[in-house]
Design a protein around this nucleic acid. Sequence first.
DNA 1: CTTATTTATATCGTTCACGATGCAAAAGTA
DNA 2: TACTTTTGCATCGTGAACGATATAAATAAG
Lengths: 151, 151
Amino acid sequence: MEYEQLKLDNQLCFRLYTAARLTIGAYHPYLDPLGITYPQYLVLLVLWEQDKQPVNDIAHKLFLETNTVTPLLQRMEKSGLVKRTKGKEDTRQRIVSLTKKSIEMREQAKHIPDCLSDEIIRITGEEEEFVRMIPSLDKLIEGLKCTTNNK
Amino acid sequence: MEYEQLKLDNQLCFRLYTAARLTIGAYHPYLDPLGITYPQYLVLLVLWEQDKQPVNDIAHKLFLETNTVTPLLQRMEKSGLVKRTKGKEDTRQRIVSLTKKSIEMREQAKHIPDCLSDEIIRITGEEEEFVRMIPSLDKLIEGLKCTTNNK
DNA sequence: CTTATTTATATCGTTCACGATGCAAAAGTA
DNA sequence: TACTTTTGCATCGTGAACGATATAAATAAG
């Protein structure tokens, strides 16, 4: 049993990675009709909460690097989901704002979280269990966020 | 509060997605010296458990599509981590096997799971909490696995 | 007021992840 | 046996993620 820990079954990270991918997959039936991807949906969630934010703020809220978010926003601009304007006080900043299209999309997206909850209940028979994971995941994220930054 | 559910704070999937990315990031200090990526590490975990498997078996165990795994294996072959030989009974199959390099690497990788456990404990102060998430994640994965396939 | 440093984005290269499609071998069917 | 379907893998195109690097503007230091 020298290599017992190396078994796939014992890996937390593998499960997080797989659960995340498969859960994102479960969003497809709802996001495809809107013509957006899951990361684009996340950007919209951020902007729907507060419009007109610089790239950095969006990246921070999503725990992503700006070099991931910038091309993401460029694609979203190309498909008419956001506008990117130069900042007025700080001209280095790019202020990202919603468009008519993405403002209207909010109405269609409103029901998605509930659909996903129902989906999880339908599939696993329960939801409480996963809601209870949230504080633990937040703790993990909070801890790891700093480590990566300190590198 | 019409759009309350659309708040980022209320999304389980976003947390899974973030936790997975950040946890994979925590593997970097251990995988970089070995010259492998996290998905490549997962492939090695599978092969270390059982050598000489067809592409499909590896893909299934990792819940990945073969069109993700094939290029992954091609890169691993290029860097000398695996061999890919034609199957004998079924010539459509590609049997993936370990090389001297990847067999030796197992010894260096042996301690990685414990290092990661220690890391999580160091950062969050606890581990029990995350070990307890494993059955829930498995339940979620098991449920979603079928949905994606039925599509 | 220069010069140095930091900050906000952007660009580039590599590696996934996956839908769509292609292709040849295997299996099933007429 | 000839034909159809399925299966195993590969290829292609697109969209992330992210390390490394670049660039210009803002800020700090001298």
